[in-house]
Design a protein around this nucleic acid. Structure first.
Lengths: 209, 209, 209, 209
DNA sequence: GATGAATGAGTTTTCATTCAT
DNA sequence: AATGAATGAAAACTCATTCAT
């Protein structure tokens, strides 16, 4: 009987997870289409095909589900930029940066809806969300800055204001992401863009020399 | 007697304008502090020290007053970037760009509260505001791209993807603005930042050659 | 000097009366066009070309000015139905009723706008107005009933339920007025209508005998 | 289990309908007591003992709930006047008219509160309501006129201005209804009144011959 | 007297969240 | 677990009336 109960429990839990995912998915679609503030719980439950009360069985509320979606994206983005290896024998920083930019843009491309939200609706979504996003970007900036400083130390980079440079790197990639998610037509060439943004970041506008 | 009437009328109009400005000012403060969505008309009238109805005497509503604040900033920003002179004898593009970056950052510095809002709460502020902002950035991007193409033509710039480069230029400046308005402490050195961001945009990260 | 003062006072009073009339006129037009509830004080002062405060120098408020307009019409209507003469030698009741119906319809025709209002917006205009109108119709009904009873007494009328008959008389005339003021085209023949309504009231629908 | 679900659903639906009716009932009471314009949604929900939001769960707003009440009455009134039969062998028009007047007054008596409103506050209840009422009376008038014309053709009625006569018939019945709903004491004898109004409409005031 | 800016009570409406079934 | 009816706290907006100039 215990086995049976376990089976039941397992199946129940699986169903629960499925449903949870379905709601998350529906919320993602709705947030992506209408934006956080224009989206009502009614929209989400309609898209998910569930009852009002059911929504609150799975999530604490509108902010909570948004926060969860946000966290998922941030985790993916974070994953796409870890891996800079400053040990000897590792690929040169330029290659690593190239990889990172590629990965980040890929992640954005793969999570277009979600990316739209965090890029466009930076704040005003409730204190918790605001804090989460701010922290993410803060960490990201520090990470980039440390990478740049390391590059400076090993003589790979020219003497620059690493703080401002980090800001510029972040800004240029973010803006590219924004243009990408904003583009109504789908023929945005991610690879070309990644190459170009890297080229820009590495060499600037002027002819070298 | 007519003179007196004129005097009265003038004074009345002056008072009216003052009031209007005071409300705009109060709204600006409130939007800056709480963000667009967190701000209610009640907040604004409280900050302005006026009655409910008075607000609607001067503005159509929350969106309208925000739109007006936005337009003011956009006009100033626009003004800070006009003036690129491609005629012979004009200063080189690099100098002009330098001037522009300086001016833009100055404008942002001078309108910190307002800048905060349009940078942080990019969209979801009502259809009209959204459209206005989107258009502004669109025009800005095209403007930058044209300037870069001109630079290419006259051989000032190296061969670059001007579309992506324009995005990068815009993004780096925007991100700098964001860091600036976000910085809680006031010791953000605008001039240093302007120089650094220009240096980055012009020469990139790598040593030349 | 007293003479001069009197002259001034007189002229001032004349001016005051003129203005008062002008406002009443403007209010009449506006009420007639939009109805009592849709009409705002703003509408009236705009139509009158006066300032907000000025309105309150002449009238206590929106209800008060409406009440005054109402009273004017009621006085005229009342005047158009006095004069039923039950003394010997007077014209027969039938003729007198004919005269009354004619006069009433004429009064309505001459005060079309105002009539529209009291016919269409019977109540809900504030307690005072409601009471005034109710009283008017009550008195009117009693008046008609007494006339009918007198007619009965002198054998002019057949045995009828005078209370209900009075109601019917009032109702038929009121409905005629309503159709009249509602008619968009202006070719409503008052005289023909007066004759027909009298004919109906006196002889009914069936052939006599 | 499905049966149980159906049972639940049915019960839920029944409860929902009950609630709806209860709100309509409360609104009817409130409109009847205070009139349309004096009634606020707050009044209705208080009378119904429900929360603010609940009201909007069942009705779009004040106008919508009034419109529904109005439609119910108009349907009943309409039903009370269909059935005039002009085929051979049918009861004479006089009898049919008698039936109609009886039925109409009964309907009014059975819907006293609602009747009060549409009779007293004829217009200014919102465009849609106004149009609905105007159309209703228009149709009613045409209907009466056609009936009278038919009566003329078959020689049942004397030569009359059928248009004005229709107006008079409608007016006399409406005024009777008004007196009825206005009467504070309840001893208004509907049957007597119906007879008297018919007598008046058919034979008029004067002795026949 | 005239003006029109200022007032604020009063209404409508929305929507995230709760809770009985 | 699931449901969806019920809730009520906000929030926006209107407009008759007052009052300082």
């Amino acid at each position: 009987m215990r086995g049976q109960v376990d089976g039941r429990t397992l199946r129940a839990e699986a169903r629960r997870e499925n449903r949870r995912s379905a709601i998350l998915e529906a919320a993602l679609r709705t947030f992506g289409e209408k934006g956080f503030h224009q989206t009502t719980v009614a929209d989400i439950i309609q898209a998910a095909g569930i009852a009002r009360g059911t929504f609150y069985l799975y999530f604490e509320g509108k902010s909570a589900i948004f926060l969860e979606l946000l966290d998922r994206l941030l985790v993916e983005l974070r994953a796409s930029i870890v891996g800079v290896d400053r040990k000897e024998g590792a690929p040169p920083l330029s290659v690593q940066l190239d990889t990172i930019v590629h990965r980040v843009l890929r992640t954005v491309a793969d999570n277009r809806l979600l990316s739209t939200i965090i890029i466009r609706e930076a704040v005003g979504l409730g204190d918790e969300v605001d804090v989460r996003l701010r922290l993410f970007y803060q960490k990201l900036l520090r990470y980039i800055r440390l990478a740049l400083e390391e590059g400076r130390r090993v003589g790979l980079l020219r003497p620059i204001d690493t703080e401002v440079a980090a800001i510029c790197v972040l800004g240029s990639v973010k803006q590219l992401m924004e243009q990408y998610v904003m583009a109504e037509d789908d023929h945005f060439d991610v690879d070309r863009a990644a190459l170009a943004v890297l080229d820009f970041n590495l060499h600037g506008l002027l002819p070298s020399g």
